[in-house]
Design a protein around this nucleic acid. Structure first.
Lengths: 218, 218
DNA sequence: ATACAGCATGGAATTACATCCAGTAATGGT
DNA sequence: ACCATTACTGGATGTAATTCCATGCTGTAT
């Protein structure tokens, strides 16, 4: 239904996404023009109208930087809201490569905590393996509260699946490259090229719980 | 240096996060003013400056909607903080010197979590101040699950009241001397002589929760 | 040939915004 | 008593930004 974007339109769109990722807000017409080499902001305006007509962005009239991405994405899609019955939050242990995180086989037990205690809502608790996030107080054995979504921003703590391996890291993106950054000087950042490697974002970290039934604080 | 957002500043910050989630770009001064009921955009401007000075946002001079979240957090979600759940763990905020920990005045709200999730049972959650326990992953703003007791053993994490000040430390005793030991090389152990100083043990730490709707994870 | 999108320049009107200045008032600490 | 914050009202100014208009150059389908 959406006719393909022309190369120039793609450039404009890419610049909008890049700007929003790096600055946190969309560019103005003038900024687009400057970045793409137009001498008139009107060139940008007309590209925006084309992008709006093709449905990939939505313009907000009369509003500075009033550009919204129609389908927010790293992978595509939106927040899932599978309404599962409430026994509490499922606690997910070791996730086997290649299988879905919430497969019943991985669910150790349930934590009797309301998902809404965290914001955004937590969908499950993932038991953390390794020390890669210890500098921000996420230790081996901790439960990471995870909100299922693939809409992430630079700087967030994400649960990512890279080539079938599930890992918790800080997320940073630039164009087609993503860095998965550990919070521990002993671990080097992982650089991912989205053109050649399969990266899926399983969710974002929204909280941490330690000491759940059993292991101690020490 | 970043300590406390005032309630009003928190409102402004929440509105910024909410706007960015819903619209994809930050609000203008006028929009903040309208949302919070100010009659002048200058009120919003001054709150933004305060938030900038406290480090939670960064302002981009001369730029419309030039507001960036410093500690990335998205999906701020709904405004309702409370709502239900009286049968959870009370969350205790700043404890005034000399008053009992569980005095109603200190109870911010309740966490809908079963006390038995921790072992031994948690009686309340204490919001941690300061960085003295950061090396074992207990950070500023975390909720420490506390079991009320005054029977403690060496090496446990305790909530102690020393001369009317409430503090979280690791406990060690030898005869009439007690050491309250921080888990942070920048803090020296506190030596207490039980013959001359009043030390009360309020309880032991049995768990940690981070991210409980008061943001964190950064 | 002649339309019609894509891709631009250049100019200009009109808002939308950030930001400065001068006040008022309540609070809490020294 | 005094000063520093917090928390605003009200108004003003200049620039940042959207958006309209006129114009022209390409290709490629009609």
């Amino acid at each position: 239904m959406t006719r393909p974007l022309t190369p120039r339109q793609q450039n404009v769109y890419d610049f909008i996404v890049k700007t929003m990722n790096e600055l946190g807000y969309p560019p103005t017409r003038a900024e687009i023009a400057r970045a793409l080499g137009f001498r008139s902001p009107n060139a940008a305006e007309e590209h925006l109208r084309a992008l709006d007509k093709k449905g990939v962005i939505r313009m907000v009239a009369g509003t500075s930087r009033g550009i919204r991405l129609a389908n927010q994405e790293i992978d595509g899609g939106a927040d899932e809201t599978d309404g599962q019955a409430n026994n509490g939050l499922p606690i997910v242990g070791d996730v086997a490569a290649g299988s879905p995180i919430l497969a019943a086989a991985h669910i150790d037990r349930y934590c009797p905590l309301s998902p809404d205690f965290f914001s955004p809502r937590a969908d499950y608790l993932l038991r953390v393996r390794g020390l890669s996030m210890q500098d921000i107080g996420i230790l081996e054995g901790d439960l990471l509260a995870v909100h299922r979504t693939n809409r992430v921003r630079d700087g967030q703590i994400v649960v990512a699946r890279l080539e079938d391996d599930v890992t918790v890291k800080r997320f940073k993106r630039q164009g087609h490259k993503v860095w998965l950054i550990a919070e521990n000087a002993d671990f080097a950042p992982i650089e991912v090229d989205l053109r050649h490697q399969a990266l899926e974002i399983e969710g974002v970290g929204v909280g941490v719980i330690r000491g759940g039934n059993g292991q101690a604080l020490n």
